[in-house]
């Protein structure tokens, strides 16, 4: 069996079991199709509404992909500031934690007031939700550099900046990407919440917006079809991050490789 087949088979087999059970349960008549549509009707709806769903995928994918990228940059930058300055650590860290407790609905009107009915306010929400895991894992990654490593660099006459550039920065990269993986899990839901909480103009308002509209209109199969696309998007982003890690920090996934 090829390597690709070996890594694809288990998740596909599990997916087949889940879909089979779902189909059997939905067909048994235990629930209404408004509550739980059968997989075959979700698939049919996906096929029939492919263009509509693809149109809504555009803004949502933009919010998630761009949002994670910006969150990675913001979380990393804040982590570096916190790492270098005790004052900033005391000033920024509690506020960063607190920012995660603010319900999106509270700030959504302000974001719309600033940035209008386009993608920007949703992007801001995704960034706000996603920067936090990146911040935490990167701060930890930076703190995990061994004191002996820094001592060694000092005897090689490295300045504080050079110690950062040669040792701490590369060591923190895999940690930041791990943070982005966690952020991805909350980021997809974040995009949905952002779309739910903001008014959007235009024909394609995003998958989250579409799901809410479809559920209200009892178009449950199409809501499920859109959710399925979100599901696939999350998986695709996860693997994209794995590839990014292999490109940016190949030592982290190399056998026997360890981060000092």
């Amino acid at each position: 069996m090829s390597r690709a087949a070996r890594s694809l088979l288990p998740p596909l087999a599990l997916l087949a079991i889940v879909i089979g059970a779902w189909e059997a349960y939905a067909d048994s008549g235990a629930t209404s199709s408004f509550v739980l549509p059968a997989p075959h009707s979700v698939a049919a709806s996906l096929w029939d509404n492919a263009g509509f769903i693809a149109g809504n995928l555009g803004p949502t994918a933009e919010e998630i992909v761009l949002g994670i990228a910006l969150a990675l940059a913001l979380g990393f930058a804040l982590a570096v500031l916190i790492h270098f300055s005790g004052v900033l650590r005391r000033a920024v860290y509690p506020l960063a934690v607190g920012s995660q407790a603010v319900p999106v609905a509270v700030i959504a009107p302000l974001l719309v007031f600033w940035w209008g009915f386009g993608v920007l306010p949703k992007l801001a929400v995704v960034v706000l939700i996603c920067f936090f895991p990146v911040l935490v894992t990167t701060v930890d990654g930076l703190a995990r550099i061994e004191r002996d490593q820094l001592k060694l660099l000092r005897t090689l006459d490295a300045s504080r900046w050079q110690a950062f550039r040669f040792a701490e920065l590369p060591a923190a990269l895999p940690a930041a990407i791990s943070g982005a993986r966690i952020a991805l899990a909350v980021g997809v839901i974040g995009a949905y919440i952002a779309e739910s909480q903001t008014v959007t103009s235009g024909a394609h308002a995003g998958l989250g917006h579409e799901i809410n509209a479809d559920l209200t209109a009892l178009q449950t199969p199409r809501a499920y079809a859109a959710a399925l696309v979100l599901f696939a998007l999350a998986i695709a982003c996860f693997y994209a991050l794995t590839l990014a890690e292999r490109a940016l920090a190949p030592w982290a996934s190399r056998p026997g490789g360890e981060t000092p």
Binding site: E146, D148, T155, F166, P170, W251, R254
Partner: peptide, 28 residues
């Protein structure tokens, strides 16, 4: 001026052997 070689090699895993050896030169 003295330079330390600690018990553990503390090589940087992201650098090749030659780049690890050249670290002090890069710092200079």
């Amino acid at each position: 001026p003295a330079v330390l070689m600690p018990q553990r090699d503390l090589l940087l895993p992201w650098l090749s052997a030659v780049d690890n050896a050249a670290l002090a030169l890069r710092i200079a």
